[in-house]
Design a protein around this nucleic acid. Structure first.
Length: 308
RNA sequence: GGAGGGGUGGCCGAGCGGUCAAUGGCAGCAGACUGUAAAUCUGCCGACUUCGCGUCUACGAAGGUUCGAAUCCUUCCCCCUCCA
């Protein structure tokens, strides 16, 4: 039985979903989401999740399955993805991972240090302390417990300092100690990775057009309904590009044109960060330039090569 | 016509005689990345450059004061508010 998992990665708007869908149709596949924001349920349009029409063509998994109030993580996603891949293979379908969250993909393929879950509320507390103590004092306090991690972190990196402190509090063991020598469990599956690397100008144009299409396709109502529920601003799922800007617009702080402009800019900046990640942190089996072609042929060639 | 306020690097916006090529933010470029990752963070960001605390051009325009001005004075050109 073949257990190769196809992975389609690339920056937002590069055409991952289209490739995954086309490939899945031809190979009896299931598309499994590998994008953090797309696994939340609040913004199907804003996060460019596959449409109902697309989902009806081929099975899709892990899209919009998590309530906005929850917090996803690399390890948690890996567990979810493992289950889906398993289920997919058991059903005789080809698992096709599709997404742009590089850390998640790497965690699935190569593993991550095994660290116990931390109680909810700890992070919130640590964040509050970072604010009240100030970066300097917070960092000094962490240095007493975990000097190794402090030496690695940039002084202003709130998020990583908070995580390190949270782990120390929850486990009584330094994060650096948990990480040392533990790369985690490598995956039991074999992966065939396809990386979409589009030309900048082309991508920029697509991102802008996609945002405009969302605007006329109902995002305003979608985001507004979430806005009206006054969600906790700390929920990670609220960070979906466009949501903070549109929220600001609903509050009367930004014109719609400005919200659009800024949302597009942020999406483009994110695409750049993704490209940097993939370029330096991942070695794909095949690189596809989606500017000229969907990449279907190269992906199929890759699969036959992997199976041989 | 009269009274004020203002014109600063791609944009916004500090500076108000020297330590200013000029705080800061945005945008841009490059980069980092082991559990919030559509996150978080770092560097560069006038031109030239052997990339050096080097040279040049710069704070609406033109003059002037001064050892020295983005910062003071004069005139001019724009913009905004208010009174007519």
């Amino acid at each position: 039985m073949d257990q190769t998992v196809i992975v389609i990665a690339g920056p937002t708007g590069s055409g991952k979903s289209a490739l995954a869908l086309a490939f899945a149709e031809r190979h009896r596949g299931t598309v499994i989401n590998a994008d953090a924001m797309q696994t939340y349920d609040a913004f199907p349009i804003l996060t460019a999740q596959p449409t109902p029409a697309e989902r009806s063509r081929v099975p899709h998994a892990l899209y919009g399955v998590l309530p906005l109030s929850e917090t996803l993580s690399a390890a948690r996603w890996r567990a979810l993805a493992d289950v889906e891949i398993e289920r997919c293979l058991a059903a005789g379908r080809a698992p096709i991972l599709c997404g742009g969250s590089g850390l998640y993909l790497r965690t699935l393929m190569q593993g991550i240090a095994t660290i116990p879950d931390t109680p909810t509320g700890l992070r919130e507390q640590a964040n509050a302390e970072w604010m009240s103590l100030g970066a300097e004092a917070f960092r000094a306090r962490l240095a007493e417990k975990d000097p190794a991690i402090v030496a690695r972190l940039k002084p202003a990196d709130r998020q990583r300092h908070v995580r390190a402190w949270e782990v120390w509090l929850a486990t009584g063991r330094p994060l650096s100690a948990w990480q040392a020598g533990d790369e985690g469990e490598p995956s039991r599956w074999r992966f065939a990775t396809v990386l979409l690397v589009p030309e900048r100008g082309w991508l920029r144009d697509r991102i802008e057009k996609r945002f405009d299409a969302m605007l006329t396709g109902g995002v305003l109502a979608e985001v507004r309904s979430v806005f009206d529920r006054a969600p906790d601003p700390r929920w990670p799922g609220l960070k979906a590009h466009g949501a903070p800007e549109l929220f600001a617009h609903f509050r009367g702080e930004l014109s719609l044109e400005d919200a659009r402009r800024i949302g597009i800019d942020h999406t483009r900046q994110y695409a750049k960060r993704q490209m940097t990640w993939f370029r330096h942190q991942m070695t794909p089996d095949v690189v596809v330039d989606p500017t000229s072609d969907l990449g279907l042929e190269q992906t199929e060639k890759l699969l036959t090569k992997t199976e041989a």
